[in-house]
């Protein structure tokens, strides 16, 4: 019925590898940036200072109600306008992903912080630690240990989401697969191959999450 042509995949492996590297790099940087800004947002929301928590809550709810593609379009349009010069697709995409994912990470981190018993923070206060010392040495380390599995899960989702840079033709794994598919006229092979690669990476990631969950229960 149909001959699967492995040749097209083998011939284009270096190109595909470059795309995969870009996907992974974007994921890694966006996870780091997302957790950083997410932590700030979560602390703002739990700070008990009304203006701060209001700003953070508005930001998180706004970002969470719009699609990622729209956010990507926003930043492609806004970033060069604000900076006055183009900075390239990669950095626009990186900023869009970081700020978008920060909203999702902040919800996870907020739940993580709330999972640390209040007595811990109070004990810190009683010992005379400052607010930042308490967060840095007592609350956040425990919170992050509790939420490690969910953070990795969000990282896997983020990795899948990076495929959306396709809409602005940034050459990640998805875009590269699609370019090869079109130029070589081999849509079936390339898209099935790309699906397999994504599946293997994400499935391996979710098995890792399961191990983390078992470790955290034990």
């Amino acid at each position: 019925m149909f001959n699967f042509d492995f040749e097209v995949i083998l011939n284009n492996l270096p190109f595909l590898w470059e795309g995969l590297q870009l996907s992974l790099l974007l994921t890694g940087l966006a996870v780091i940036g997302g957790i950083f800004f997410g932590t700030i947002l979560a602390l703002m929301r739990l700070s008990g200072i009304l203006p701060l928590s209001l700003v953070a809550a508005t930001y998180v709810n706004l970002i969470r109600s719009v699609p990622l593609i729209l956010v990507i379009f926003w930043f492609y349009f806004l970033v060069p306008l604000i900076l006055g010069r183009p900075i390239g697709s990669f950095y626009s995409a990186l900023i869009a992903f970081t700020l978008f994912e920060a909203a999702y990470f902040s919800e996870i981190i907020r739940a993580g912080i709330q999972s640390v018993r209040q007595g811990q923070g109070q004990a810190g206060q009683a010992t005379g630690l400052s607010y930042f010392q308490i967060q840095r040495h007592i609350v956040l380390p425990q919170a992050f240990r509790n939420m490690a599995p969910i953070l990795v899960t969000q990282g896997i989702i983020l990795f899948q989401d990076t495929s959306l840079v396709f809409v602005v033709s940034l050459r990640d794994f998805m875009t590269v697969s699609s370019i090869i598919a079109r130029t070589e006229g081999r849509l079936i092979e390339m898209y099935i191959f790309a699906a397999c690669v994504y599946f293997v990476i994400c499935f391996a990631g979710s098995l890792f999450v399961r191990r983390l969950q078992k470790a955290s229960i034990a």
């Binding site: 149909f2 495929s163 396709f166 699609s178 079936i188 898209y191 699906a195 599946f199 499935f203």
Partner: peptide, 23 residues
């Protein structure tokens, strides 16, 4: 569940649109 959750939605869309009619 594992298959549909671990492949990006964009790729699934392309599989249905470009690949399924050929198979």
């Amino acid at each position: 569940v594992e298959i549909f959750r671990n492949v990006p939605l964009l790729l699934q869309l392309f599989l249905w649109y470009f690949v399924m009619p050929e198979l």
